[in-house]
């Protein structure tokens, strides 16, 4: 039986950069718990012989040849950006390197 704590919801919200108020946490925690409980019905089944499904389609090994195709979109995309400099996107300084 899946259960979900208020702290877990707050943590997941933080990871998604969502600022939830206390009232919103109170609202969403039981809602999310109910969704998980729904999925937990599946856990009751014996699925040892069923491989995990990552995709619904019966497809594999879909690829393209390694051939260059220039898009030529750079100037249009830069023109649509909030701020640019020297052909680059200008963004607020972010502390630290990539996670």
């Amino acid at each position: 039986m899946a259960s979900l704590s208020r702290e877990e919801v707050a943590h997941v919200a933080q990871l998604a950069r969502l600022n939830l108020t206390d009232e919103q946490l109170d609202t969403f925690t039981p809602q999310l718990a109910a969704i998980l409980a729904n999925a937990a019905d599946v856990e009751a089944l014996d699925l040892d012989d069923v491989p995990p499904t990552s995709h619904p389609y019966p497809l594999q090994n879909v690829w393209r040849p390694d051939v260059v195709r220039q898009s030529g979109v750079r100037d249009a995309v830069l023109a649509a950006a909030p701020a640019t400099q020297d052909g680059m996107f200008r963004v607020p300084s972010v502390l630290g390197d990539a996670p």
Partner: peptide
């Protein structure tokens, strides 16, 4: 990194 005013992305 820690003192940068903004960053330019390529």
């Amino acid at each position: 990194i820690h003192d940068a005013e903004h960053s330019l992305v390529d």
